[in-house]
Design a protein around this nucleic acid. Structure first.
Lengths: 357, 357
DNA sequence: ATTCGCAACGAAAACGTTTTCGTGTTGACA
DNA sequence: TGTCAACACGAAAACGTTTTCGTTGCGAAT
């Protein structure tokens, strides 16, 4: 077991100074061709690779970006990570992930753990608990320390930073319009509580689409699921709730659900009630994941393009990091530096499958 | 925007030496109570936190572990990550993830990128291409450099390291036995090509279970899917292949599939052919993911307990890292240090749902 | 009066780089 | 012969810590 070799060891072995070795390896023309070749050969032989930590310390940047998300066993979030990793790697960055598990405290702990030099910037999506508390001081604090943040999907106007969001509102509008165009008269909405902004926006899109289609919104047709409890492990509760909903509203001929789990469950319930999909009731869900693709019938969805979101977020962050780099040469007053933050909106797309006509 | 404060700045501000500040902050009794209090107050006021990179350089360990997996948009792998992150965080470690995307080259690039000081050890699962090439020199190389590796799920005997695997063989045996016990006479196997060890082991389990049940294996009932092509984006190919399979073998009354996608697709195909599940044909899949839980009918599966695998892997790695730490005090010859590597086997569990009687 | 011990602090090395700024040795040229 | 530039290299600082080993001053003991 031979540990990694360092400049110092090469220098000692070849009887030159550390600086000579360093320069030779970077092909500096300060060093003669002879010694350069000798050193490079030796370095290659012993498989020398510069130590990242030492470089990070010297350059005061780590070339790694921190991802902080609520949950990783989740199709959308993992897609985003894939996008981030793709771009990050391509541009020479590493990715370190922290999971908030939807908890305010874990979010803070994780941020502090990473903000102390481990990373150059954050890409994050806010936890539910944080959204509920509306306490965003930790975000602003780390931004004030000079660490850039890019938020995606679950964002908040109280924090000034770059953002990548999906057009929840228009996505919902498109979906509901499609149901209307397909002949649905009584379109139900299955959504979450309002504090998660994406749920709220999708609900607004639903209402908007009904309005412009000349259909009166009927509050009986809106089902708000309390997702503060762990839905995944209380599937039958969810099923029962939706079943009740269907029994009370027998006239439902279209369903728009704000996520695919609700949509798939709605399909399941409807079929148990003897309804045919898509003939008796058509269903569209938000979030295009594995479930939608492989359900029977397969589910028409509003795709969020998670990977694209991740790619955009990564590009935004790295662009900003490199801008800061370039900036540090010049002199800027605080006002000049106060850049305008970018908000990228990813367009949604309807993916038609078997659950609609 | 105020950058993070350093020991040096505190020292200058309070007109003491750097060492005094460092000692005061760690409550050394070398420093008088007065100065200690003064320094700690100042540090708290300016929210001093030691710089992780500097600490890493000094201590020659980063307190972060590298995860290298083939794919992240994958229920099983993300579950494992969740387990790793849970333990890592609890034990004071961060996790940095690299994706090989099933590519040999990306696997190597990623390893080299991380092995140069960024992490203390690896947790990884081998890419398909690497398994196909059977070239494992990069694993052995990093182990030889003193960096411990823990492999999970897709492991290989050619590399000497700790391993966490699921009992693929017995899991398959259990599943097929259950089908036999439930009255199935003609049990089909839908599997992958042999080079992925887990697929091979599950196939062996299938054969074993048939053998001990006194049923002759019929090679017509074994369907090997070529998953070197991107199955997710060629779903209809998969469907057609399985449909042909069913048409040729009309007597199939049970299906064991080595992953949930194959299982769910088999169910879909069977139903299109007018077969009832579970009355006409019963289905069990390996890998318990979202699909299994939410399919209609829901799928009976062999659960791999991904999160538990992640937790075990993390504990194994951190245990070893801390052992190395303690070791470094004493003197060991190479022979003495050659420790025995641990192989943890995670027991599978059959989760019964609607696709079996 | 000298020695001793202790309390309180500082200097410096070390971790592994890169980079700036010397410095000594050539050879050419006036 | 003396000057100067070019060449080839080394010393040292810096990044931010921790830790070892001084060093100082002072009261007590001999």
């Amino acid at each position: 077991m031979k540990r990694k070799i360092t400049l110092k060891q090469i220098a000692r072995e070849l009887d030159v100074s550390i600086s000579t070795v360093s320069k030779a390896l970077s092909n500096s023309k300060e060093i003669s061709e002879d010694t350069t070749k000798k050193i490079q050969a030796f370095a290659k032989l012993y498989n020398y690779k510069p130590n990242n930590i030492a470089l990070s310390l010297k350059n005061r940047k780590t070339k790694t970006i921190g991802i902080l998300i609520p949950e990783i066993v989740h199709h959308f979030f993992s897609t985003v990570i894939r996008g981030i990793e793709l771009i990050a790697n391509r541009r020479g960055y590493n990715v370190i992930v922290g999971l908030s598990n939807e908890s305010f405290t874990k979010e803070i702990i994780n941020m502090e753990m990473l903000a102390n030099g481990s990373i150059d910037g954050f890409i994050l999506s806010i936890s539910k608990e944080t959204l509920l508390k509306q306490d965003y001081h930790h975000f602003n604090a780390t931004i004030n320390q000079g660490m850039p943040i890019v938020m995606f999907d679950r964002v908040v106007s109280e924090v000034d930073c770059d953002k990548v969001i999906v057009d929840d509102f228009n996505g919902a509008v498109k979906a509901v319009k499609k149901l209307v165009d397909n002949g649905c008269k009584n379109i139900a909405l299955i959504t979450t509580m309002d504090y998660v902004s994406v749920g709220r926006l999708r609900t607004q899109g639903y209402l908007e689409a009904l309005g412009t289609s000349g259909i009166d919104a009927n509050s009986n047709l809106i089902l708000k699921i309390d997702d503060s409890l762990d839905v995944e492990n209380h599937l039958d509760d969810l099923e029962n709730e939706i079943a009740q909903f269907f029994k009370i509203n027998e006239n439902i001929d279209g369903v728009f659900a704000v996520n695919e789990l609700y949509a798939v469950t709605a399909m399941k319930v409807a079929r148990k009630l003897g309804l045919n999909i898509p003939n008796d009731v058509q269903v569209i869900g938000f979030t295009d994941g594995v479930l939608s693709k492989h359900a029977t019938p397969s589910l028409t969805t509003v795709s969020q393009h998670g990977q694209k979101m991740g790619e955009q977020a990564a590009n935004l962050l790295i662009d900003r990091l490199e801008a800061i780099d370039a900036e540090s040469d010049q002199y800027f007053t605080n006002d000049e530096r106060k850049s305008d933050f970018i908000k990228v909106v990813i367009e949604t797309e309807i993916i038609e499958r078997e659950s609609t006509k």
